[in-house]
Simulated assay, not measured.
Amino acid sequence: MSNTDRPARLHYMANGFRVLSPGDHVVCAVTGARIRLEDLRYWSVGEQAAYASAAIASEALAPQ
Rank of each mutant, 00 (worst) to 15 (best):
A54V: 10
Y42P: 05
A60N: 09
S58N: 11
A50M: 09
L40H: 14
A29D: 02
L37F: 13
V27W: 07
R34C: 07
A49E: 14
D24L: 05
G23K: 00
T31S: 12
E59M: 02
R34Y: 06
G23V: 00
A54W: 11
A29S: 01
A33D: 04
S58E: 14
V30D: 08
A49L: 12
R36C: 10
D24N: 08
A50I: 08
S44H: 09
R36L: 13
V45M: 14
E38R: 15
A55G: 00
E47N: 04
A29C: 01
G23R: 01
S58V: 11
Q48N: 12
R34L: 10
H25R: 05
R34S: 13
L37K: 12
V45W: 15
T31C: 06
E59Y: 00
D24W: 08
V26F: 07
A57R: 09
E59K: 03
L61Y: 03
E47V: 03
Y42A: 14
T31P: 04
E59W: 01
G23A: 00
L37G: 13
L61P: 02
H25I: 01
C28I: 02
G32D: 07
L40D: 15
V45G: 12
L61H: 03
G23D: 00
A33Q: 04
G23E: 00
R34G: 05
L40Q: 15
P22D: 03
S53I: 00
S21L: 04
V45H: 15
D39H: 09
L40W: 14
A29G: 03
P22Q: 02
V30A: 10
S58T: 12
Y51A: 04
Q48T: 10
G32L: 07
R36I: 05
